[in-house]
Nucleic acid binder design. Structure first.
Length: 281
DNA sequence: ATGGCAGAAGCATTCTGA
């Protein structure tokens, strides 16, 4: 079961590349961030035509997340209020569409687009801090259902120094500050594992390269797109990769897709004791 | 300290991203 995440920087301007990649890789699930489109204008048919189901939660021009899935998406939860009481969430946290979850093949998929934060102690930074504090509460609430969970998306945080091409220059600044790292680590708790670091212990692997300053050609990147899995999925984890070649595409997103392979069979245990004949009525 | 580059909105230029 392939599960992927991709900040596409506008789903409409990236549509042909995303469709081509889906046809080529055939992932079971793809989570999109920065779709930058109102729900009424989401290019739904293009995904339906190649056999995918879609749930989206977007807005005009900015933000927006979507889940693309071969299998049915159940128990869809839109925004923080998909888990939390409305009273726990400010109007401002409602207004930006950045989190969407659904149940696919027995796995809870939580697709997030964490705010960038602009610069330390700016108004947008404070928004990022509030957002991460709410994500913490969301994950505590969500964990009570005990579902195997995959938390993935654009986190806009390099969790450790080996996730930045030049840590001396960037550590302490936006996306690499102590506050952001601490808040993300606290939200993850001991329940989530960074799938990429199960396989790759060294620095030098990036998922985002700035459009400016020839960053991709110079390979000056950051690893800010992550796929976290709950502990109970670790034994199912077979690989975790960055699809770097998609950043070489004509007019690409500034992010590459990231993807895991899970060897997971939802109903294996439940079906063992069933009689076959219930399927042959 | 600022801009580089890209996308959306909308038609010149501004806002936003990371």
């Amino acid at each position: 079961m392939l599960i992927a995440s991709w900040n596409v920087n506008s789903v409409r301007s990236r549509l042909s590349q995303v469709i081509k990649w889906l046809e080529d890789k055939q992932p079971e699930v793809l989570c999109l961030q920065e779709t930058k489109v109102s729900d009424k204008d989401f290019p739904l048919k293009d995904f339906k035509n190649i056999g995918y189901n879609v749930k989206f939660y977007g807005q005009k021009s900015y933000n927006g997340v979507a889940i693309i899935s071969k299998d049915k998406i159940g128990d869809t939860r839109y925004g923080f209020n998909g888990e939390l009481n409305e009273l726990q969430i400010s109007e401002q946290l409602h207004s930006q569409k950045r989190i969407l979850s659904g149940l696919i093949n027995g796995i809870r998929i939580i697709n997030v687009y964490v705010p960038n934060g602009s610069s330390i102690n700016s108004e947008k930074f404070n928004y990022k801090v509030s957002w991460l504090a709410t994500l913490y509460k969301y994950l505590v609430k969500q964990s009570k259902r005990g579902e195997p969970t995959c938390l993935l998306g654009d986190f806009n945080i390099a969790l450790n120094d080996d996730d930045i091409h030049d840590p001396d220059k960037f550590t302490g600044g936006i996306m690499a500050s102590e506050v952001e790292r601490k808040m993300l680590k606290e939200a993850l708790g001991s329940r989530f594992i960074d799938s990429f670091r199960v396989f790759e212990k060294f620095s030098g692997h990036w998922s985002w390269w700035d459009y400016r300053n020839n960053s991709f050609e110079l390979n000056k990147g950051w690893r800010i797109d992550h796929i976290y899995i709950s502990n109970n999925l670790l034994s199912s984890l077979k690989s975790s990769v960055i699809e770097r070649s998609q950043r070489e595409y004509n007019q690409p997103s500034d992010h590459a897709p990231v993807m895991i392979n899970l060897d997971f069979q939802e109903n294996l245990v439940e079906f063992e004791d069933e009689d076959d004949d219930i399927f042959n009525l």
